[in-house]
């Protein structure tokens, strides 16, 4: 019982703190790649703290409801991850957050919000099947959807699921809103999107979506960590390398359109998953 309580607390605390730090590192790394100095490491926390204490402007009260649902769902998903629950269940809970964010954006009447929301839906459409297939890959190898069994697996899963790891990389790029998949909202698309999906979230509610996003990032990195769960060192190297690659990809690619995203991610992602799954199935 106390163990459960501690794990829940860990999930609730680790999400925002680690997520914020990762985001800060991300911004510094990006700045360095562009030969800038970049903001301090704690900049994301400054931003969120500032936003939390700004005036709350509301476009449609349902948006507030949706923002709260988003953070609730993403924090529950991470807590479930820390409780070593069923991986498929965690994905479903995480999807609730993503969908609520979209519903909130659709509840505004601004065309920018709408375009962002629909692009976000297309992003969900692109990555969701792949994420499920990654989890299926875990199941085919370890015989379980439960995180306890997956973490306890005797050898690094990366060796058996290399293609699925690449697939997860695509998912991660979309979820982290990195180029070339930063279609729905991003800091650099003012001319095109204003802020897309997040256009009409403001002040404290924007802060909530940001924190919820951190929860999601940590959850995804957690799923990444499953690929090398046999020792801490391997896991750390894998995570750092993956994230570095994400930032690199973000900086060397340009934003593409949704048609390309859908066909490319489904085409490449499904093929790679299929190959890897057949391999597991026969092995």
């Amino acid at each position: 019982m106390t163990r459960t309580a501690i794990l829940i607390a860990c999930g609730l605390i680790a999400g925002p703190i680690l997520g914020g730090l990762v985001s800060g590192m991300d911004r510094i790394l990006t700045a360095r790649m562009q030969s800038r100095i970049g903001p301090p490491l704690l900049q994301p926390f400054y931003d969120v703290a500032k936003l939390l204490f700004k005036e709350s402007l509301v476009v449609n009260v349902w948006q507030v409801f949706c923002a709260y649902c988003y953070i609730a769902a993403s924090s529950i998903a991470l807590v479930l991850f820390f409780l070593q629950s069923d991986l498929l269940l965690i994905l479903f809970v995480q999807a609730v957050g993503a969908v609520m964010l979209v519903v909130g954006a659709l509840s505004s009447t601004s065309p920018y919000s709408h375009i962002g929301a629909h692009r976000e839906l297309l992003q969900i459409l692109s990555y969701e099947p792949l994420l499920v297939l990654v989890v299926v890959g875990f199941y085919l190898e370890t015989g379980s959807f439960k995180l306890t069994s997956i973490y306890a697996w005797r050898e690094p899963l990366l060796l058996k699921l290399p293609f699925l790891f690449i697939v997860l990389g695509y998912v991660l790029t979309i979820k982290l809103r990195k180029s070339p998949f930063d279609l729905s909202t991003c800091h650099h698309a003012h001319q095109e999107l204003v802020k897309g999906l997040l256009t009409d979230y403001s002040g404290p509610f924007l802060a909530l979506t940001e924190i919820a996003h951190w929860f999601e990032v940590i959850l995804l990195l957690g799923i990444c960590s499953l690929f090398w769960a046999t020792n801490w060192f391997g896991m750390a190297i894998l995570l750092v390398a993956t994230y570095f690659l994400e930032v690199l990809v973000d900086n060397i690619t340009s934003r593409m359109n949704w048609r390309w995203m859908l066909s490319y991610v489904w085409g490449v992602g499904l093929t790679l998953s299929l190959v890897n799954l057949i391999w597991l199935h026969q092995g």
Binding site: A31, G38, Q191, K195, T199, Y201
Partner: peptide
């Protein structure tokens, strides 16, 4: 630009009054 790099001070250029200070 990298020469001045205002992001050092946490300044971001946003495209939207809802997010601006």
């Amino acid at each position: 630009t990298p020469v001045y790099d205002v992001e050092r001070f946490g300044i971001i250029n946003v495209g939207n009054p809802f997010h601006a200070d």
